[in-house]
Each structure stands twice: as structure tokens, then as C-alpha cells.
Nucleic acid binder design. Structure first.
Length: 376
DNA sequence: ACGGTGAATTGTGGTCCTGCATATT
DNA sequence: GAATATGCAGGACCACAATTCACCG
């Protein structure tokens, strides 16, 4: 395991010579902003990228555990480290004898709150553990981490539906081709900086005034509404209503990390739980686009019962209620299959329905591109 | 059920305009 | 950082033949 030793040495460098934040020069840098070419701590990252809308579009990644100076793009579970492309190549070039479980990791954009950062770094397990401790001990923990269970991690908007669906890696431009998606447990995507990130997050919790509000907003007692990814749903709705493809698809666990709805035994990613919510609340919506899975609709019609709305009733017949576990596997697969089929037949080029009209239009008199009247 | 008629709607392509993003000053 | 210049994408516009639809005998 010479390669492991190599990484260990690299991580030793990280331990011995921690890079400080380029902004404050005080805390350890844990993120790298490509646009700014800067290494930042979490708090400075928040400061810098919340100043205006343009800055929120900067993509940030966790710093490479090995070189400590580049954005990571690969997670090696064998090493338990996140690596930039160069270090990944260097370390795994010499370790061809060993098959390492490596997966691509993505940065994030926007100005995430503490809760969103928790989710981004995959600290959901932490939240669950803390909840268990609370219940067994009956002691209220002063930390706010457990509420992250009810928040979602919003993926960068640049991820398209195609990217998410094509698990075969045929179309997208992920840097690490042939590398399987992230596991459901993304707890380790922050690599060997886990403790440092947690420490900085704790500091942010103390300083972030909206945390309590967040916690209220996502209180499990608030029921279904709070569990539905509102923003995501709205996005889906606008997509469906305009008969467009949704810009993202909350299916693949390598891109989204969803949190359970408070059931301790529900160790499933949110796609499943969200479907449970949709179906358990009679959330059936007529499918405007017959190729779009109606199960993806939610919220707006969740209070409409089939008896109240004939269209919903019709949809209920076409898409009868299914058990959550049944939907999560069977229907998910069929939905993905249908989408793939649709994608195959998708036509981007202009489709001429009437060739005669085309010939006519090409031969018509024009004035500045517009059709002109013909005097007879 | 069938055919005829008239009204309403659809679809076609080249150019211009507008808004947005990025680069430059 | 602000102002300006540039490039690009998408939509609007136009007339009219083709098509669709409703109605009538």
C-alpha cells in the first residue's frame, strides 16, 4: 500500500503546513474558488460570495487533500481523500495494482447557509446521530446541526437533466470518465478536512442569525409543506407548465443529497421520500406532457382530490397509487427509461411540417426579412 | 353519412430588435 | 467599480397559401 502511504504523506503535509485563508489569513482554507483563484475558509467564502449576484455564481470546491492548493474533483474512498485531477492522476498512476474506489465530486455555487453547507458536505449522518443522542439522553443539545435533516442540498444549476440521467457516461463531460457516481453516504466528500470544516461550521452557526429561523421553518411538526423541496418543486412546476424539460432531475444520488422526513429508519435518499410524500398526500397532477412523469408534480395540487378534479381523477386512473417502496424502485426505473427513450428521439433541428409552405415562404417577396404584400 | 362552403387558424423564412453576458477602457 | 463596446441568442414581425373546423343542404 505504497500509494496509501503517499497520500498519507500528502495529508501529513496538510496537517503540518495548513494553508491559511487567502482572505482573512487567519483560519485554515478549506475551499478553493476557481474564479477568484483563492483559497478560502468557510466564513470568508460566505462573506466574499454573498456580496453580489455575480459572485454567487463562482464555483467552489473543497481543497485537494494532497497538494493543498487546487480544487478537488475526485473522491477516493480508499484514501478517504479528495483530490484534484493532478494529484489523483499522480497517486493512482503508481497504484495500478490496486483498484481504488474513486468518484467524481462537484463543487457548489451560490451562497449556501450553514444548513445547506452541512448537506453539501454530507453531514447528514452526523445530524441523525445527534438526534439519537438527544432522544436517549433527553438532554437538549445546544448545537443546531440536527435540523439539517430537513433541508435539502441544492445542486448547482449547471447540472442538467441529461447529466443526471446518463449514468452510462455517454454524454456528459465529467472529468473522471468511467468513475461511478457518489455513494448515498456523501459524508466523506470533505475528505480529510472533515474536522476543520465542522469546526468552521460551528463558528458559522454561532454567527448566522437566520439559523433559528431556518430551524423553525423546517420543524418536522410543520408537516408536509416543510418537507417538500419548495424551490425545487417550483422549478419543476414551471418546467412542466411550460412543457419544457425540467432543468434538473432529483433522482441521482451522486448529484443530490436529500434528507429524510424525520423517520429514523428512513435511510433513503429524498427522491424516494419525496415520492412518498407526493403519493401519500394525493398529489396527482394531470400530465400535460405525456412523456413527463406525473409523479414529479407536487405542491400546487396536493390538496386536490380526484373527486374534486376530473382531470386529477383521470390521472389517478392512469397512475394509481403505489406503495412507496414499490415506486422507489420500479417506477423510478421506468421513469428513467422513459426519459432516456424520449431523449433518444429528441429533435433539436427545426422540423418542417409542411414542405409546400416552406417552398412558398422561400419564394415570397420580402421587405427587410418580412413578408411583403404582393400587388395583383 | 356525405359533400360543399366560408371562416378561422396555422406555418413558413429572412431580417431586425432586444436583452444578456462578457470584454475592454 | 463604473461606463462603454462587442457578441450572441432568442423572439417578433410580416403576408398568404395551406389546413382545419363548423355549419348547412
Amino acid at each position: 500500500m505504497a500509494d496509501s502511504a503517499e497520500i498519507s504523506n500528502s495529508s501529513k503535509n496538510f496537517e503540518e503546513k495548513p494553508s491559511l485563508c487567502d482572505f482573512c489569513g487567519d483560519l485554515r482554507a478549506v475551499l478553493y474558488c476557481r474564479a477568484d483563484s483563492a483559497r478560502l475558509c468557510l466564513m470568508c467564502d460566505h462573506k466574499v460570495h454573498s456580496t453580489n449576484q455575480l459572485f454567487t455564481k463562482h464555483t467552489r470546491s473543497v481543497l485537494c487533500d494532497a497538494c493543498n492548493s487546487s480544487p478537488s474533483s475526485i473522491f477516493c474512498s480508499t484514501h478517504g481523500s479528495v483530490l484534484c485531477q493532478n494529484c489523483d492522476w499522480e497517486s493512482h498512476r503508481v497504484s495500478q495494482s490496486t483498484v481504488h474506489d474513486r468518484r467524481p465530486i462537484e463543487g457548489f455555487i451560490g451562497c449556501p447557509s450553514v444548513a445547506e453547507l452541512l448537506a453539501t458536505f454530507g453531514f447528514d449522518e452526523l445530524g441523525k446521530k445527534k438526534k439519537n443522542v438527544l432522544r436517549s439522553d433527553g438532554i437538549e443539545d445546544s448545537e443546531n446541526f440536527e435540523f439539517s435533516d430537513y433541508l435539502i442540498w441544492e445542486t448547482p444549476s449547471v447540472v442538467s437533466l441529461d447529466d443526471l440521467i446518463s449514468s452510462d457516461g455517454s454524454d456528459h463531460n465529467f472529468q473522471a470518465t468511467g468513475i461511478p457516481p457518489l455513494p448515498k453516504n456523501r459524508n466523506t466528500v470533505c475528505g480529510q478536512r472533515k474536522e476543520e470544516i465542522l469546526c468552521q461550521l460551528r463558528e458559522m452557526v454561532k454567527l448566522e442569525p437566520g439559523c433559528d429561523q431556518d430551524k423553525q421553518d423546517v420543524e418536522p411538526s410543520s408537516g408536509y409543506q416543510s418537507l417538500v423541496p419548495d424551490r425545487a418543486c417550483r422549478q419543476l412546476y414551471t418546467s412542466f407548465e411550460s412543457k419544457k424539460e425540467p432543468t434538473f432531475f432529483p433522482y441521482e444520488e451522486n448529484t443530490f443529497q436529500w434528507y429524510n422526513d424525520g423517520h429514523e429508519d428512513a435511510d433513503e435518499s429524498l427522491p424516494n421520500t419525496s415520492y412518498q410524500s407526493y403519493f401519500n398526500t394525493d398529489c396527482l397532477v394531470p400530465d400535460k406532457d405525456p412523456e413527463v412523469d406525473p409523479s414529479l408534480h407536487c405542491e400546487e395540487n396536493k390538496h386536490v382530490t380526484p373527486s374534486q378534479n376530473p382531470v386529477v381523477a383521470e390521472a389517478s386512473q392512469i397512475f394509481p397509487k403505489v406503495a412507496p417502496h414499490e415506486f422507489s424502485s420500479q417506477h423510478r426505473d421506468s421513469a428513467i427509461t422513459r426519459y432516456k427513450e424520449k431523449r433518444k428521439s429528441r429533435r433539436y433541428e427545426k422540423h418542417i411540417r409542411y414542405e409546400s409552405r416552406k417552398v412558398r415562404a422561400e419564394s415570397r417577396a420580402r421587405i427587410k426579412g418580412r413578408f411583403a404584400k404582393v400587388d395583383r
